[in-house]
Design a protein around this nucleic acid. Structure first.
Lengths: 344, 344
DNA sequence: TCTCAGTGTGTATACGTATGCATTACAGCA
DNA sequence: TGCTGTAATGCATACGTATACACACTGAGA
C-alpha cells in the first residue's frame, strides 16, 4: 500500500541505504546509480515518509506559530509573510492558538513535532517563554516580547519588533505640533510589551511638549475593534474636551473611527485619530487613517530568519534583536484642534 | 538529553511497553502500576515523541489546510473556526499556501505528515483534488468545490459550502424589488465554484424579474479589494446608467464602496451595493453593507466534522455535502434607484 | 605480485512508540 | 495436588529513514 524506500531499492536493484543516499544527492553514489534510483522512485511515485525521517534525524522542518486570535485583522498580515519566508527556507508552519489552557499548548510545543516556535502574542505574565527556555526549544518573539529580558542575561530571547516607544513619541510629537493639548489614549493591554512601550513613548513625547496625560484620558484593552469602538465613547463621555486620540493600533483606531461616525463626531474636524501598523485597510478611502507605519513584512521575515539561524547553529550565543523603524504616515484623520483654528 | 519512554520505564521499574500502555490508559495495566508510571513520567517531564508515535501508528493527528492568501480578510474567518474545531477534536493544523508550484504542495500533502486536508481555495482547473484522490489522501472542500463532481460518482468529495446559487437569487430578487433594472455584477473569478454559482443565481434571479444582465455590466476578478475598487470604476465608465451592483463578496463590495467614495458617488442614493459573506467589517458604521449572510463558523465546523468522520471510517462511502443557507441582511447600502424615487 | 588508496555499495543499527504474543503469577475449582 | 482461566506484565518486533561502519572492487605504484 505505502511505498517505502525499500520498495524503491528492490525496484532499482540496490540497497535501501543507497536509495536514501541517492535521493539526497550524496556524492558518494555514482551518477548512474543516482539516475536509476531517481527513475525508480518516479516510477513508483515514492514520497519519503516524514515520520521516518523525523525519527531518524531528530528534526521536523516544521515551525510552530502561536497566535491568539486569527480573525483579528492584524495577525494575518504577520502570519502571511512569516509563512512565505518559512516555506522559502524549506520549513512548514504549524498554527497553534494560544489559549488559556497552557498545558495543552506546551505539550504540543514540546513533543518534538516542531523544531522551533514563533511567539506572536505573548503577554508579560505568560509562563510559556520560560517553559520553552527550560526545555531548550528554540523560539523567537515576533511583535511582542515577554519583558523579562534585561533582568538577567540568560533570559534573553531572539526577537523581531518595531520600536514601539519611538512610534509613541512620533505620534505625540505630531499631535503636539498640531496644537492638541487635550489628548487621549486608547491603548493596548498593559500586559503586552507593545501596549506598554507605545504608551510610554506617547506619554514621554507629550511630556516633552509640556503636556500631561491624566488617567481619565486613558482607556486600555485588547487590540480589537471593540476596544476602540466602546473605548472612544467612554473617553469622550469622561472628558468631552478631548481633541485627539492616539490608538494602540489600526484595528483599535478603526473601531474608534466607527464610534465617531455613530456619535456624529466629525473626523478630523472635531477629533484627530492616529493609529499604529498601517494595515492596508488604514489607507482605504473610508478611513484614510493617519497612522504609524513600519515594515510588517520585514519584521515577520526577520523573525523567521532569526529562528532559522538559531536552529542552524549560526546564531551567536547571546540573544539577537531586530528592531524596525516606525514613521508617521499622514492621511486624513488628523487636523489642528478646532480651538486652534478659530484663534487664527 | 531527550527523555523517552524507556527512561520512564527504568525509573518506574517496569518495561517500556507498560509505560506506553499505562499512559494511554490501557485497562490491562493495574491501577497501581498506572499511578506509578504516571508519577515517573511527571517526575521526568516526559513528553511522548510525536515522530515515534506517528511512525508506529501511521497517523499524525495533523490536518493540512490549504489557503491561497491569508491577508485576504475572508480567510481568517474561515481558518479561525476551523482551527478551533480541529483542536477540539485533538487535531492540529498545518497551514499550507496554495501556490503556483503544485509539485511542492502535493509532496507536502503526501509525505504522511498529515492525516487529511481541507481545501479552501480550489479553482475549477486545479489538478490537486484528483491527485489527492489518486493517492487516497482524505480531504474535504470548504467554501469552494472543484466542480468535477456529478460528472462521475467516484469524483465526489465531501464538501461544506453555502448555497451560492440561492444567495445570488436572493440578491437579484431584492434589487428587482427595489426597482433596479440597470444592475451590474462585480463577480468572483469564473474559475471558482462560488463565482460561477453566485453569478448563475444572480442572472437567473434577474431573469425571473424580466431583467437581462448584458456582458458590459459584468466584471470578474479575484475576491479582493482591488477587484471591487477598480472594477466599479470600469463598470460605471462602461455604463453610467447602472444603479445597483451585486458584489462577489464583502471584500469586493468594500473595494467598490471605497471607489464610490473616491468618485463621489453617493451610496445608497446614487448606487446600491450588495455583498456576500457578512464579515464583521460589513456591519461597521463606515460601510453598513447590505449583504448575504450565512453561518461561516458552522460551515467551517462542518468541514472539520466531515473530514474527521471520514478519517475515523464513520462516514458513508458516498461523498457528503453540507450546504448552509444564505439570507439577506439589510443595512445601509441599498435603496430604490433615483429614477424610481423621482417618479413617486 | 602485493599493497594501498579511493570509490561505490551493502549491512547493521539507531531513532521512540505501539502492540501481538509469550510469560508469569495467582486464584478458583475439581 | 493438578488443572484451567485470567489478570498483569515483559519480550520482541514493526514502523521508514539515515548513517556509521564494513566490505568489495579497481587501478596505481612498488
Amino acid at each position: 500500500m505505502l511505498i517505502t524506500s525499500h520498495d524503491v531499492a528492490r525496484f532499482a536493484g540496490v540497497s535501501q541505504a543507497t536509495v536514501s543516499r541517492a535521493l539526497r544527492g550524496d556524492s558518494r553514489v555514482s551518477a548512474a546509480t543516482q539516475d536509476r534510483v531517481r527513475r525508480a522512485a518516479e516510477a513508483l511515485n515514492y514520497v519519503p515518509s516524514e515520520a521516518g525521517r523525523s525519527l531518524s534525524t531528530r528534526t521536523t522542518r516544521r515551525i510552530g506559530v502561536l497566535v491568539s486570535d486569527l480573525t483579528n485583522p492584524f495577525y494575518p498580515h504577520l502570519i502571511g509573510p512569516l509563512h512565505d519566508e518559512l516555506e522559502r527556507c524549506g520549513y512548514r508552519m504549524m498554527l497553534l492558538a494560544e489559549r488559556s489552557d497552557d498545558a495543552l499548548v506546551t505539550e504540543q510545543l514540546l513533543d518534538h513535532s516542531i523544531d522551533g516556535a514563533v511567539l506572536t502574542t505573548t503577554s508579560t505574565g505568560s509562563g510559556l517563554p520560560d517553559a520553552l527556555r527550560r526545555k531548550q526549544l528554540p523560539f523567537v518573539f515576533l511583535n511582542r516580547v515577554d519583558g523579562r529580558d534585561g533582568v538577567d542575561g540568560r533570559n534573553g530571547a531572539d526577537a523581531a519588533v518595531v520600536d514601539n516607544e519611538r512610534g509613541g513619541r512620533i505620534a505625540a510629537a505630531e499631535l503636539a505640533e498640531l496644537g492638541h493639548r487635550a489628548t487621549g489614549l486608547l491603548g493596548g493591554s498593559d500586559d503586552t510589551s507593545t501596549g506598554r512601550e507605545r504608551e510610554q513613548g506617547f506619554v514621554a513625547g507629550l511630556a516633552d511638549a509640556g503636556i500631561v496625560l491624566p488617567d481619565n484620558r486613558i482607556r486600555r484593552g485588547p487590540y480589537d475593534f471593540d476596544t476602540g469602538y466602546f473605548g472612544l465613547s467612554e473617553l469622550l463621555a469622561a472628558d468631552p474636551s478631548i481633541t485627539a486620540v492616539f490608538c494602540g493600533n489600526d484595528v483599535v483606531a478603526i473601531g474608534a473611527y466607527n464610534a465617531a461616525l455613530r456619535a456624529g463626531v466629525r473626523i478630523p474636524d472635531e477629533l484627530t485619530l492616529v493609529g499604529f501598523d498601517d494595515l492596508p485597510m488604514a489607507s482605504w478611502e473610508a478611513f484614510a487613517l493617519t497612522t504609524i507605519r513600519y515594515d510588517l513584512r520585514a519584521m515577520a521575515r526577520a523573525a523567521a530568519r532569526l529562528l532559522l539561524e538559531r536552529l542552524s547553529g549560526e546564531a551567536p550565543d547571546s540573544a539577537q534583536r531586530v528592531v524596525v523603524d516606525p514613521e508617521l504616515v499622514r492621511r486624513g484623520t488628523h487636523a489642528p484642534p478646532l480651538t486652534a483654528r478659530e484663534e487664527r
